[in-house]
Amino acid sequence: MPSPPDAPHSVLDDESPRQPRSPAELFRVFNRLALQGFGGVLPIAQRELVERERWLTREQFVELLSVAQVLPGPNVVNLSLMFGDRAFGWRGGLAALGGMIAAPLLVVIALAALYTRFASHPVVAGALRGMGAVAAGLIFATGLKLIPALRRSALGLAPALACAAATFVAIGLLRVPLVAVLAVLGGGSCAWAWRRLAR
């Protein structure tokens, strides 16, 4: 399906600028992003799907992630499954999921075999700690990059930002269990959106 490479993205038009061409392409792209995802695939998924391939707008990415979040299962796995299914039905879902999991599975098992021999080496332990710090920074930065997606929220910008901040305080700082936060803050937020959408 030929599409203009840099079609301007209208605010009224919620379609993403580009579409994957085949399940095989889905497999390749999800495989590529999974293999780059050290310490978490989310930052790479945002970068590849939104910034590079432009298969999703920032708003659509947050929307998919929101649904992925409340369902059981890893967020990026659910996200790949839903995205693939939307594009090509269950074949697309399987292609995206397979791309996400197959190659990293082999890598992780190879690493498991190596780990027992080198884990206690101080240079290896230091390198892992350094990579962990960068991985944490990448995920935090991804969160910052997603904030502009709230601009068009039906909640209104200020309530949406307040809700994001409250979630961060509850989960990140106070370590309240996720289910409680989803029920109380999420329930309240959805109810507020429901009211505002009536107008």
């Binding site: 995920i139 935090f140 949406a160 994001a164 979630t167 990140g172 959805c190």
Partner: peptide
């Protein structure tokens, strides 16, 4: 209402993961 209501929580959760990790 669901997707609009959940979006800010999603952003907050991503920030939290970065903070906790």
């Amino acid at each position: 209402a669901f997707v609009n209501g959940m979006a800010p929580l999603t952003v907050g959760l991503v920030l939290s993961s970065g903070w906790v990790l």
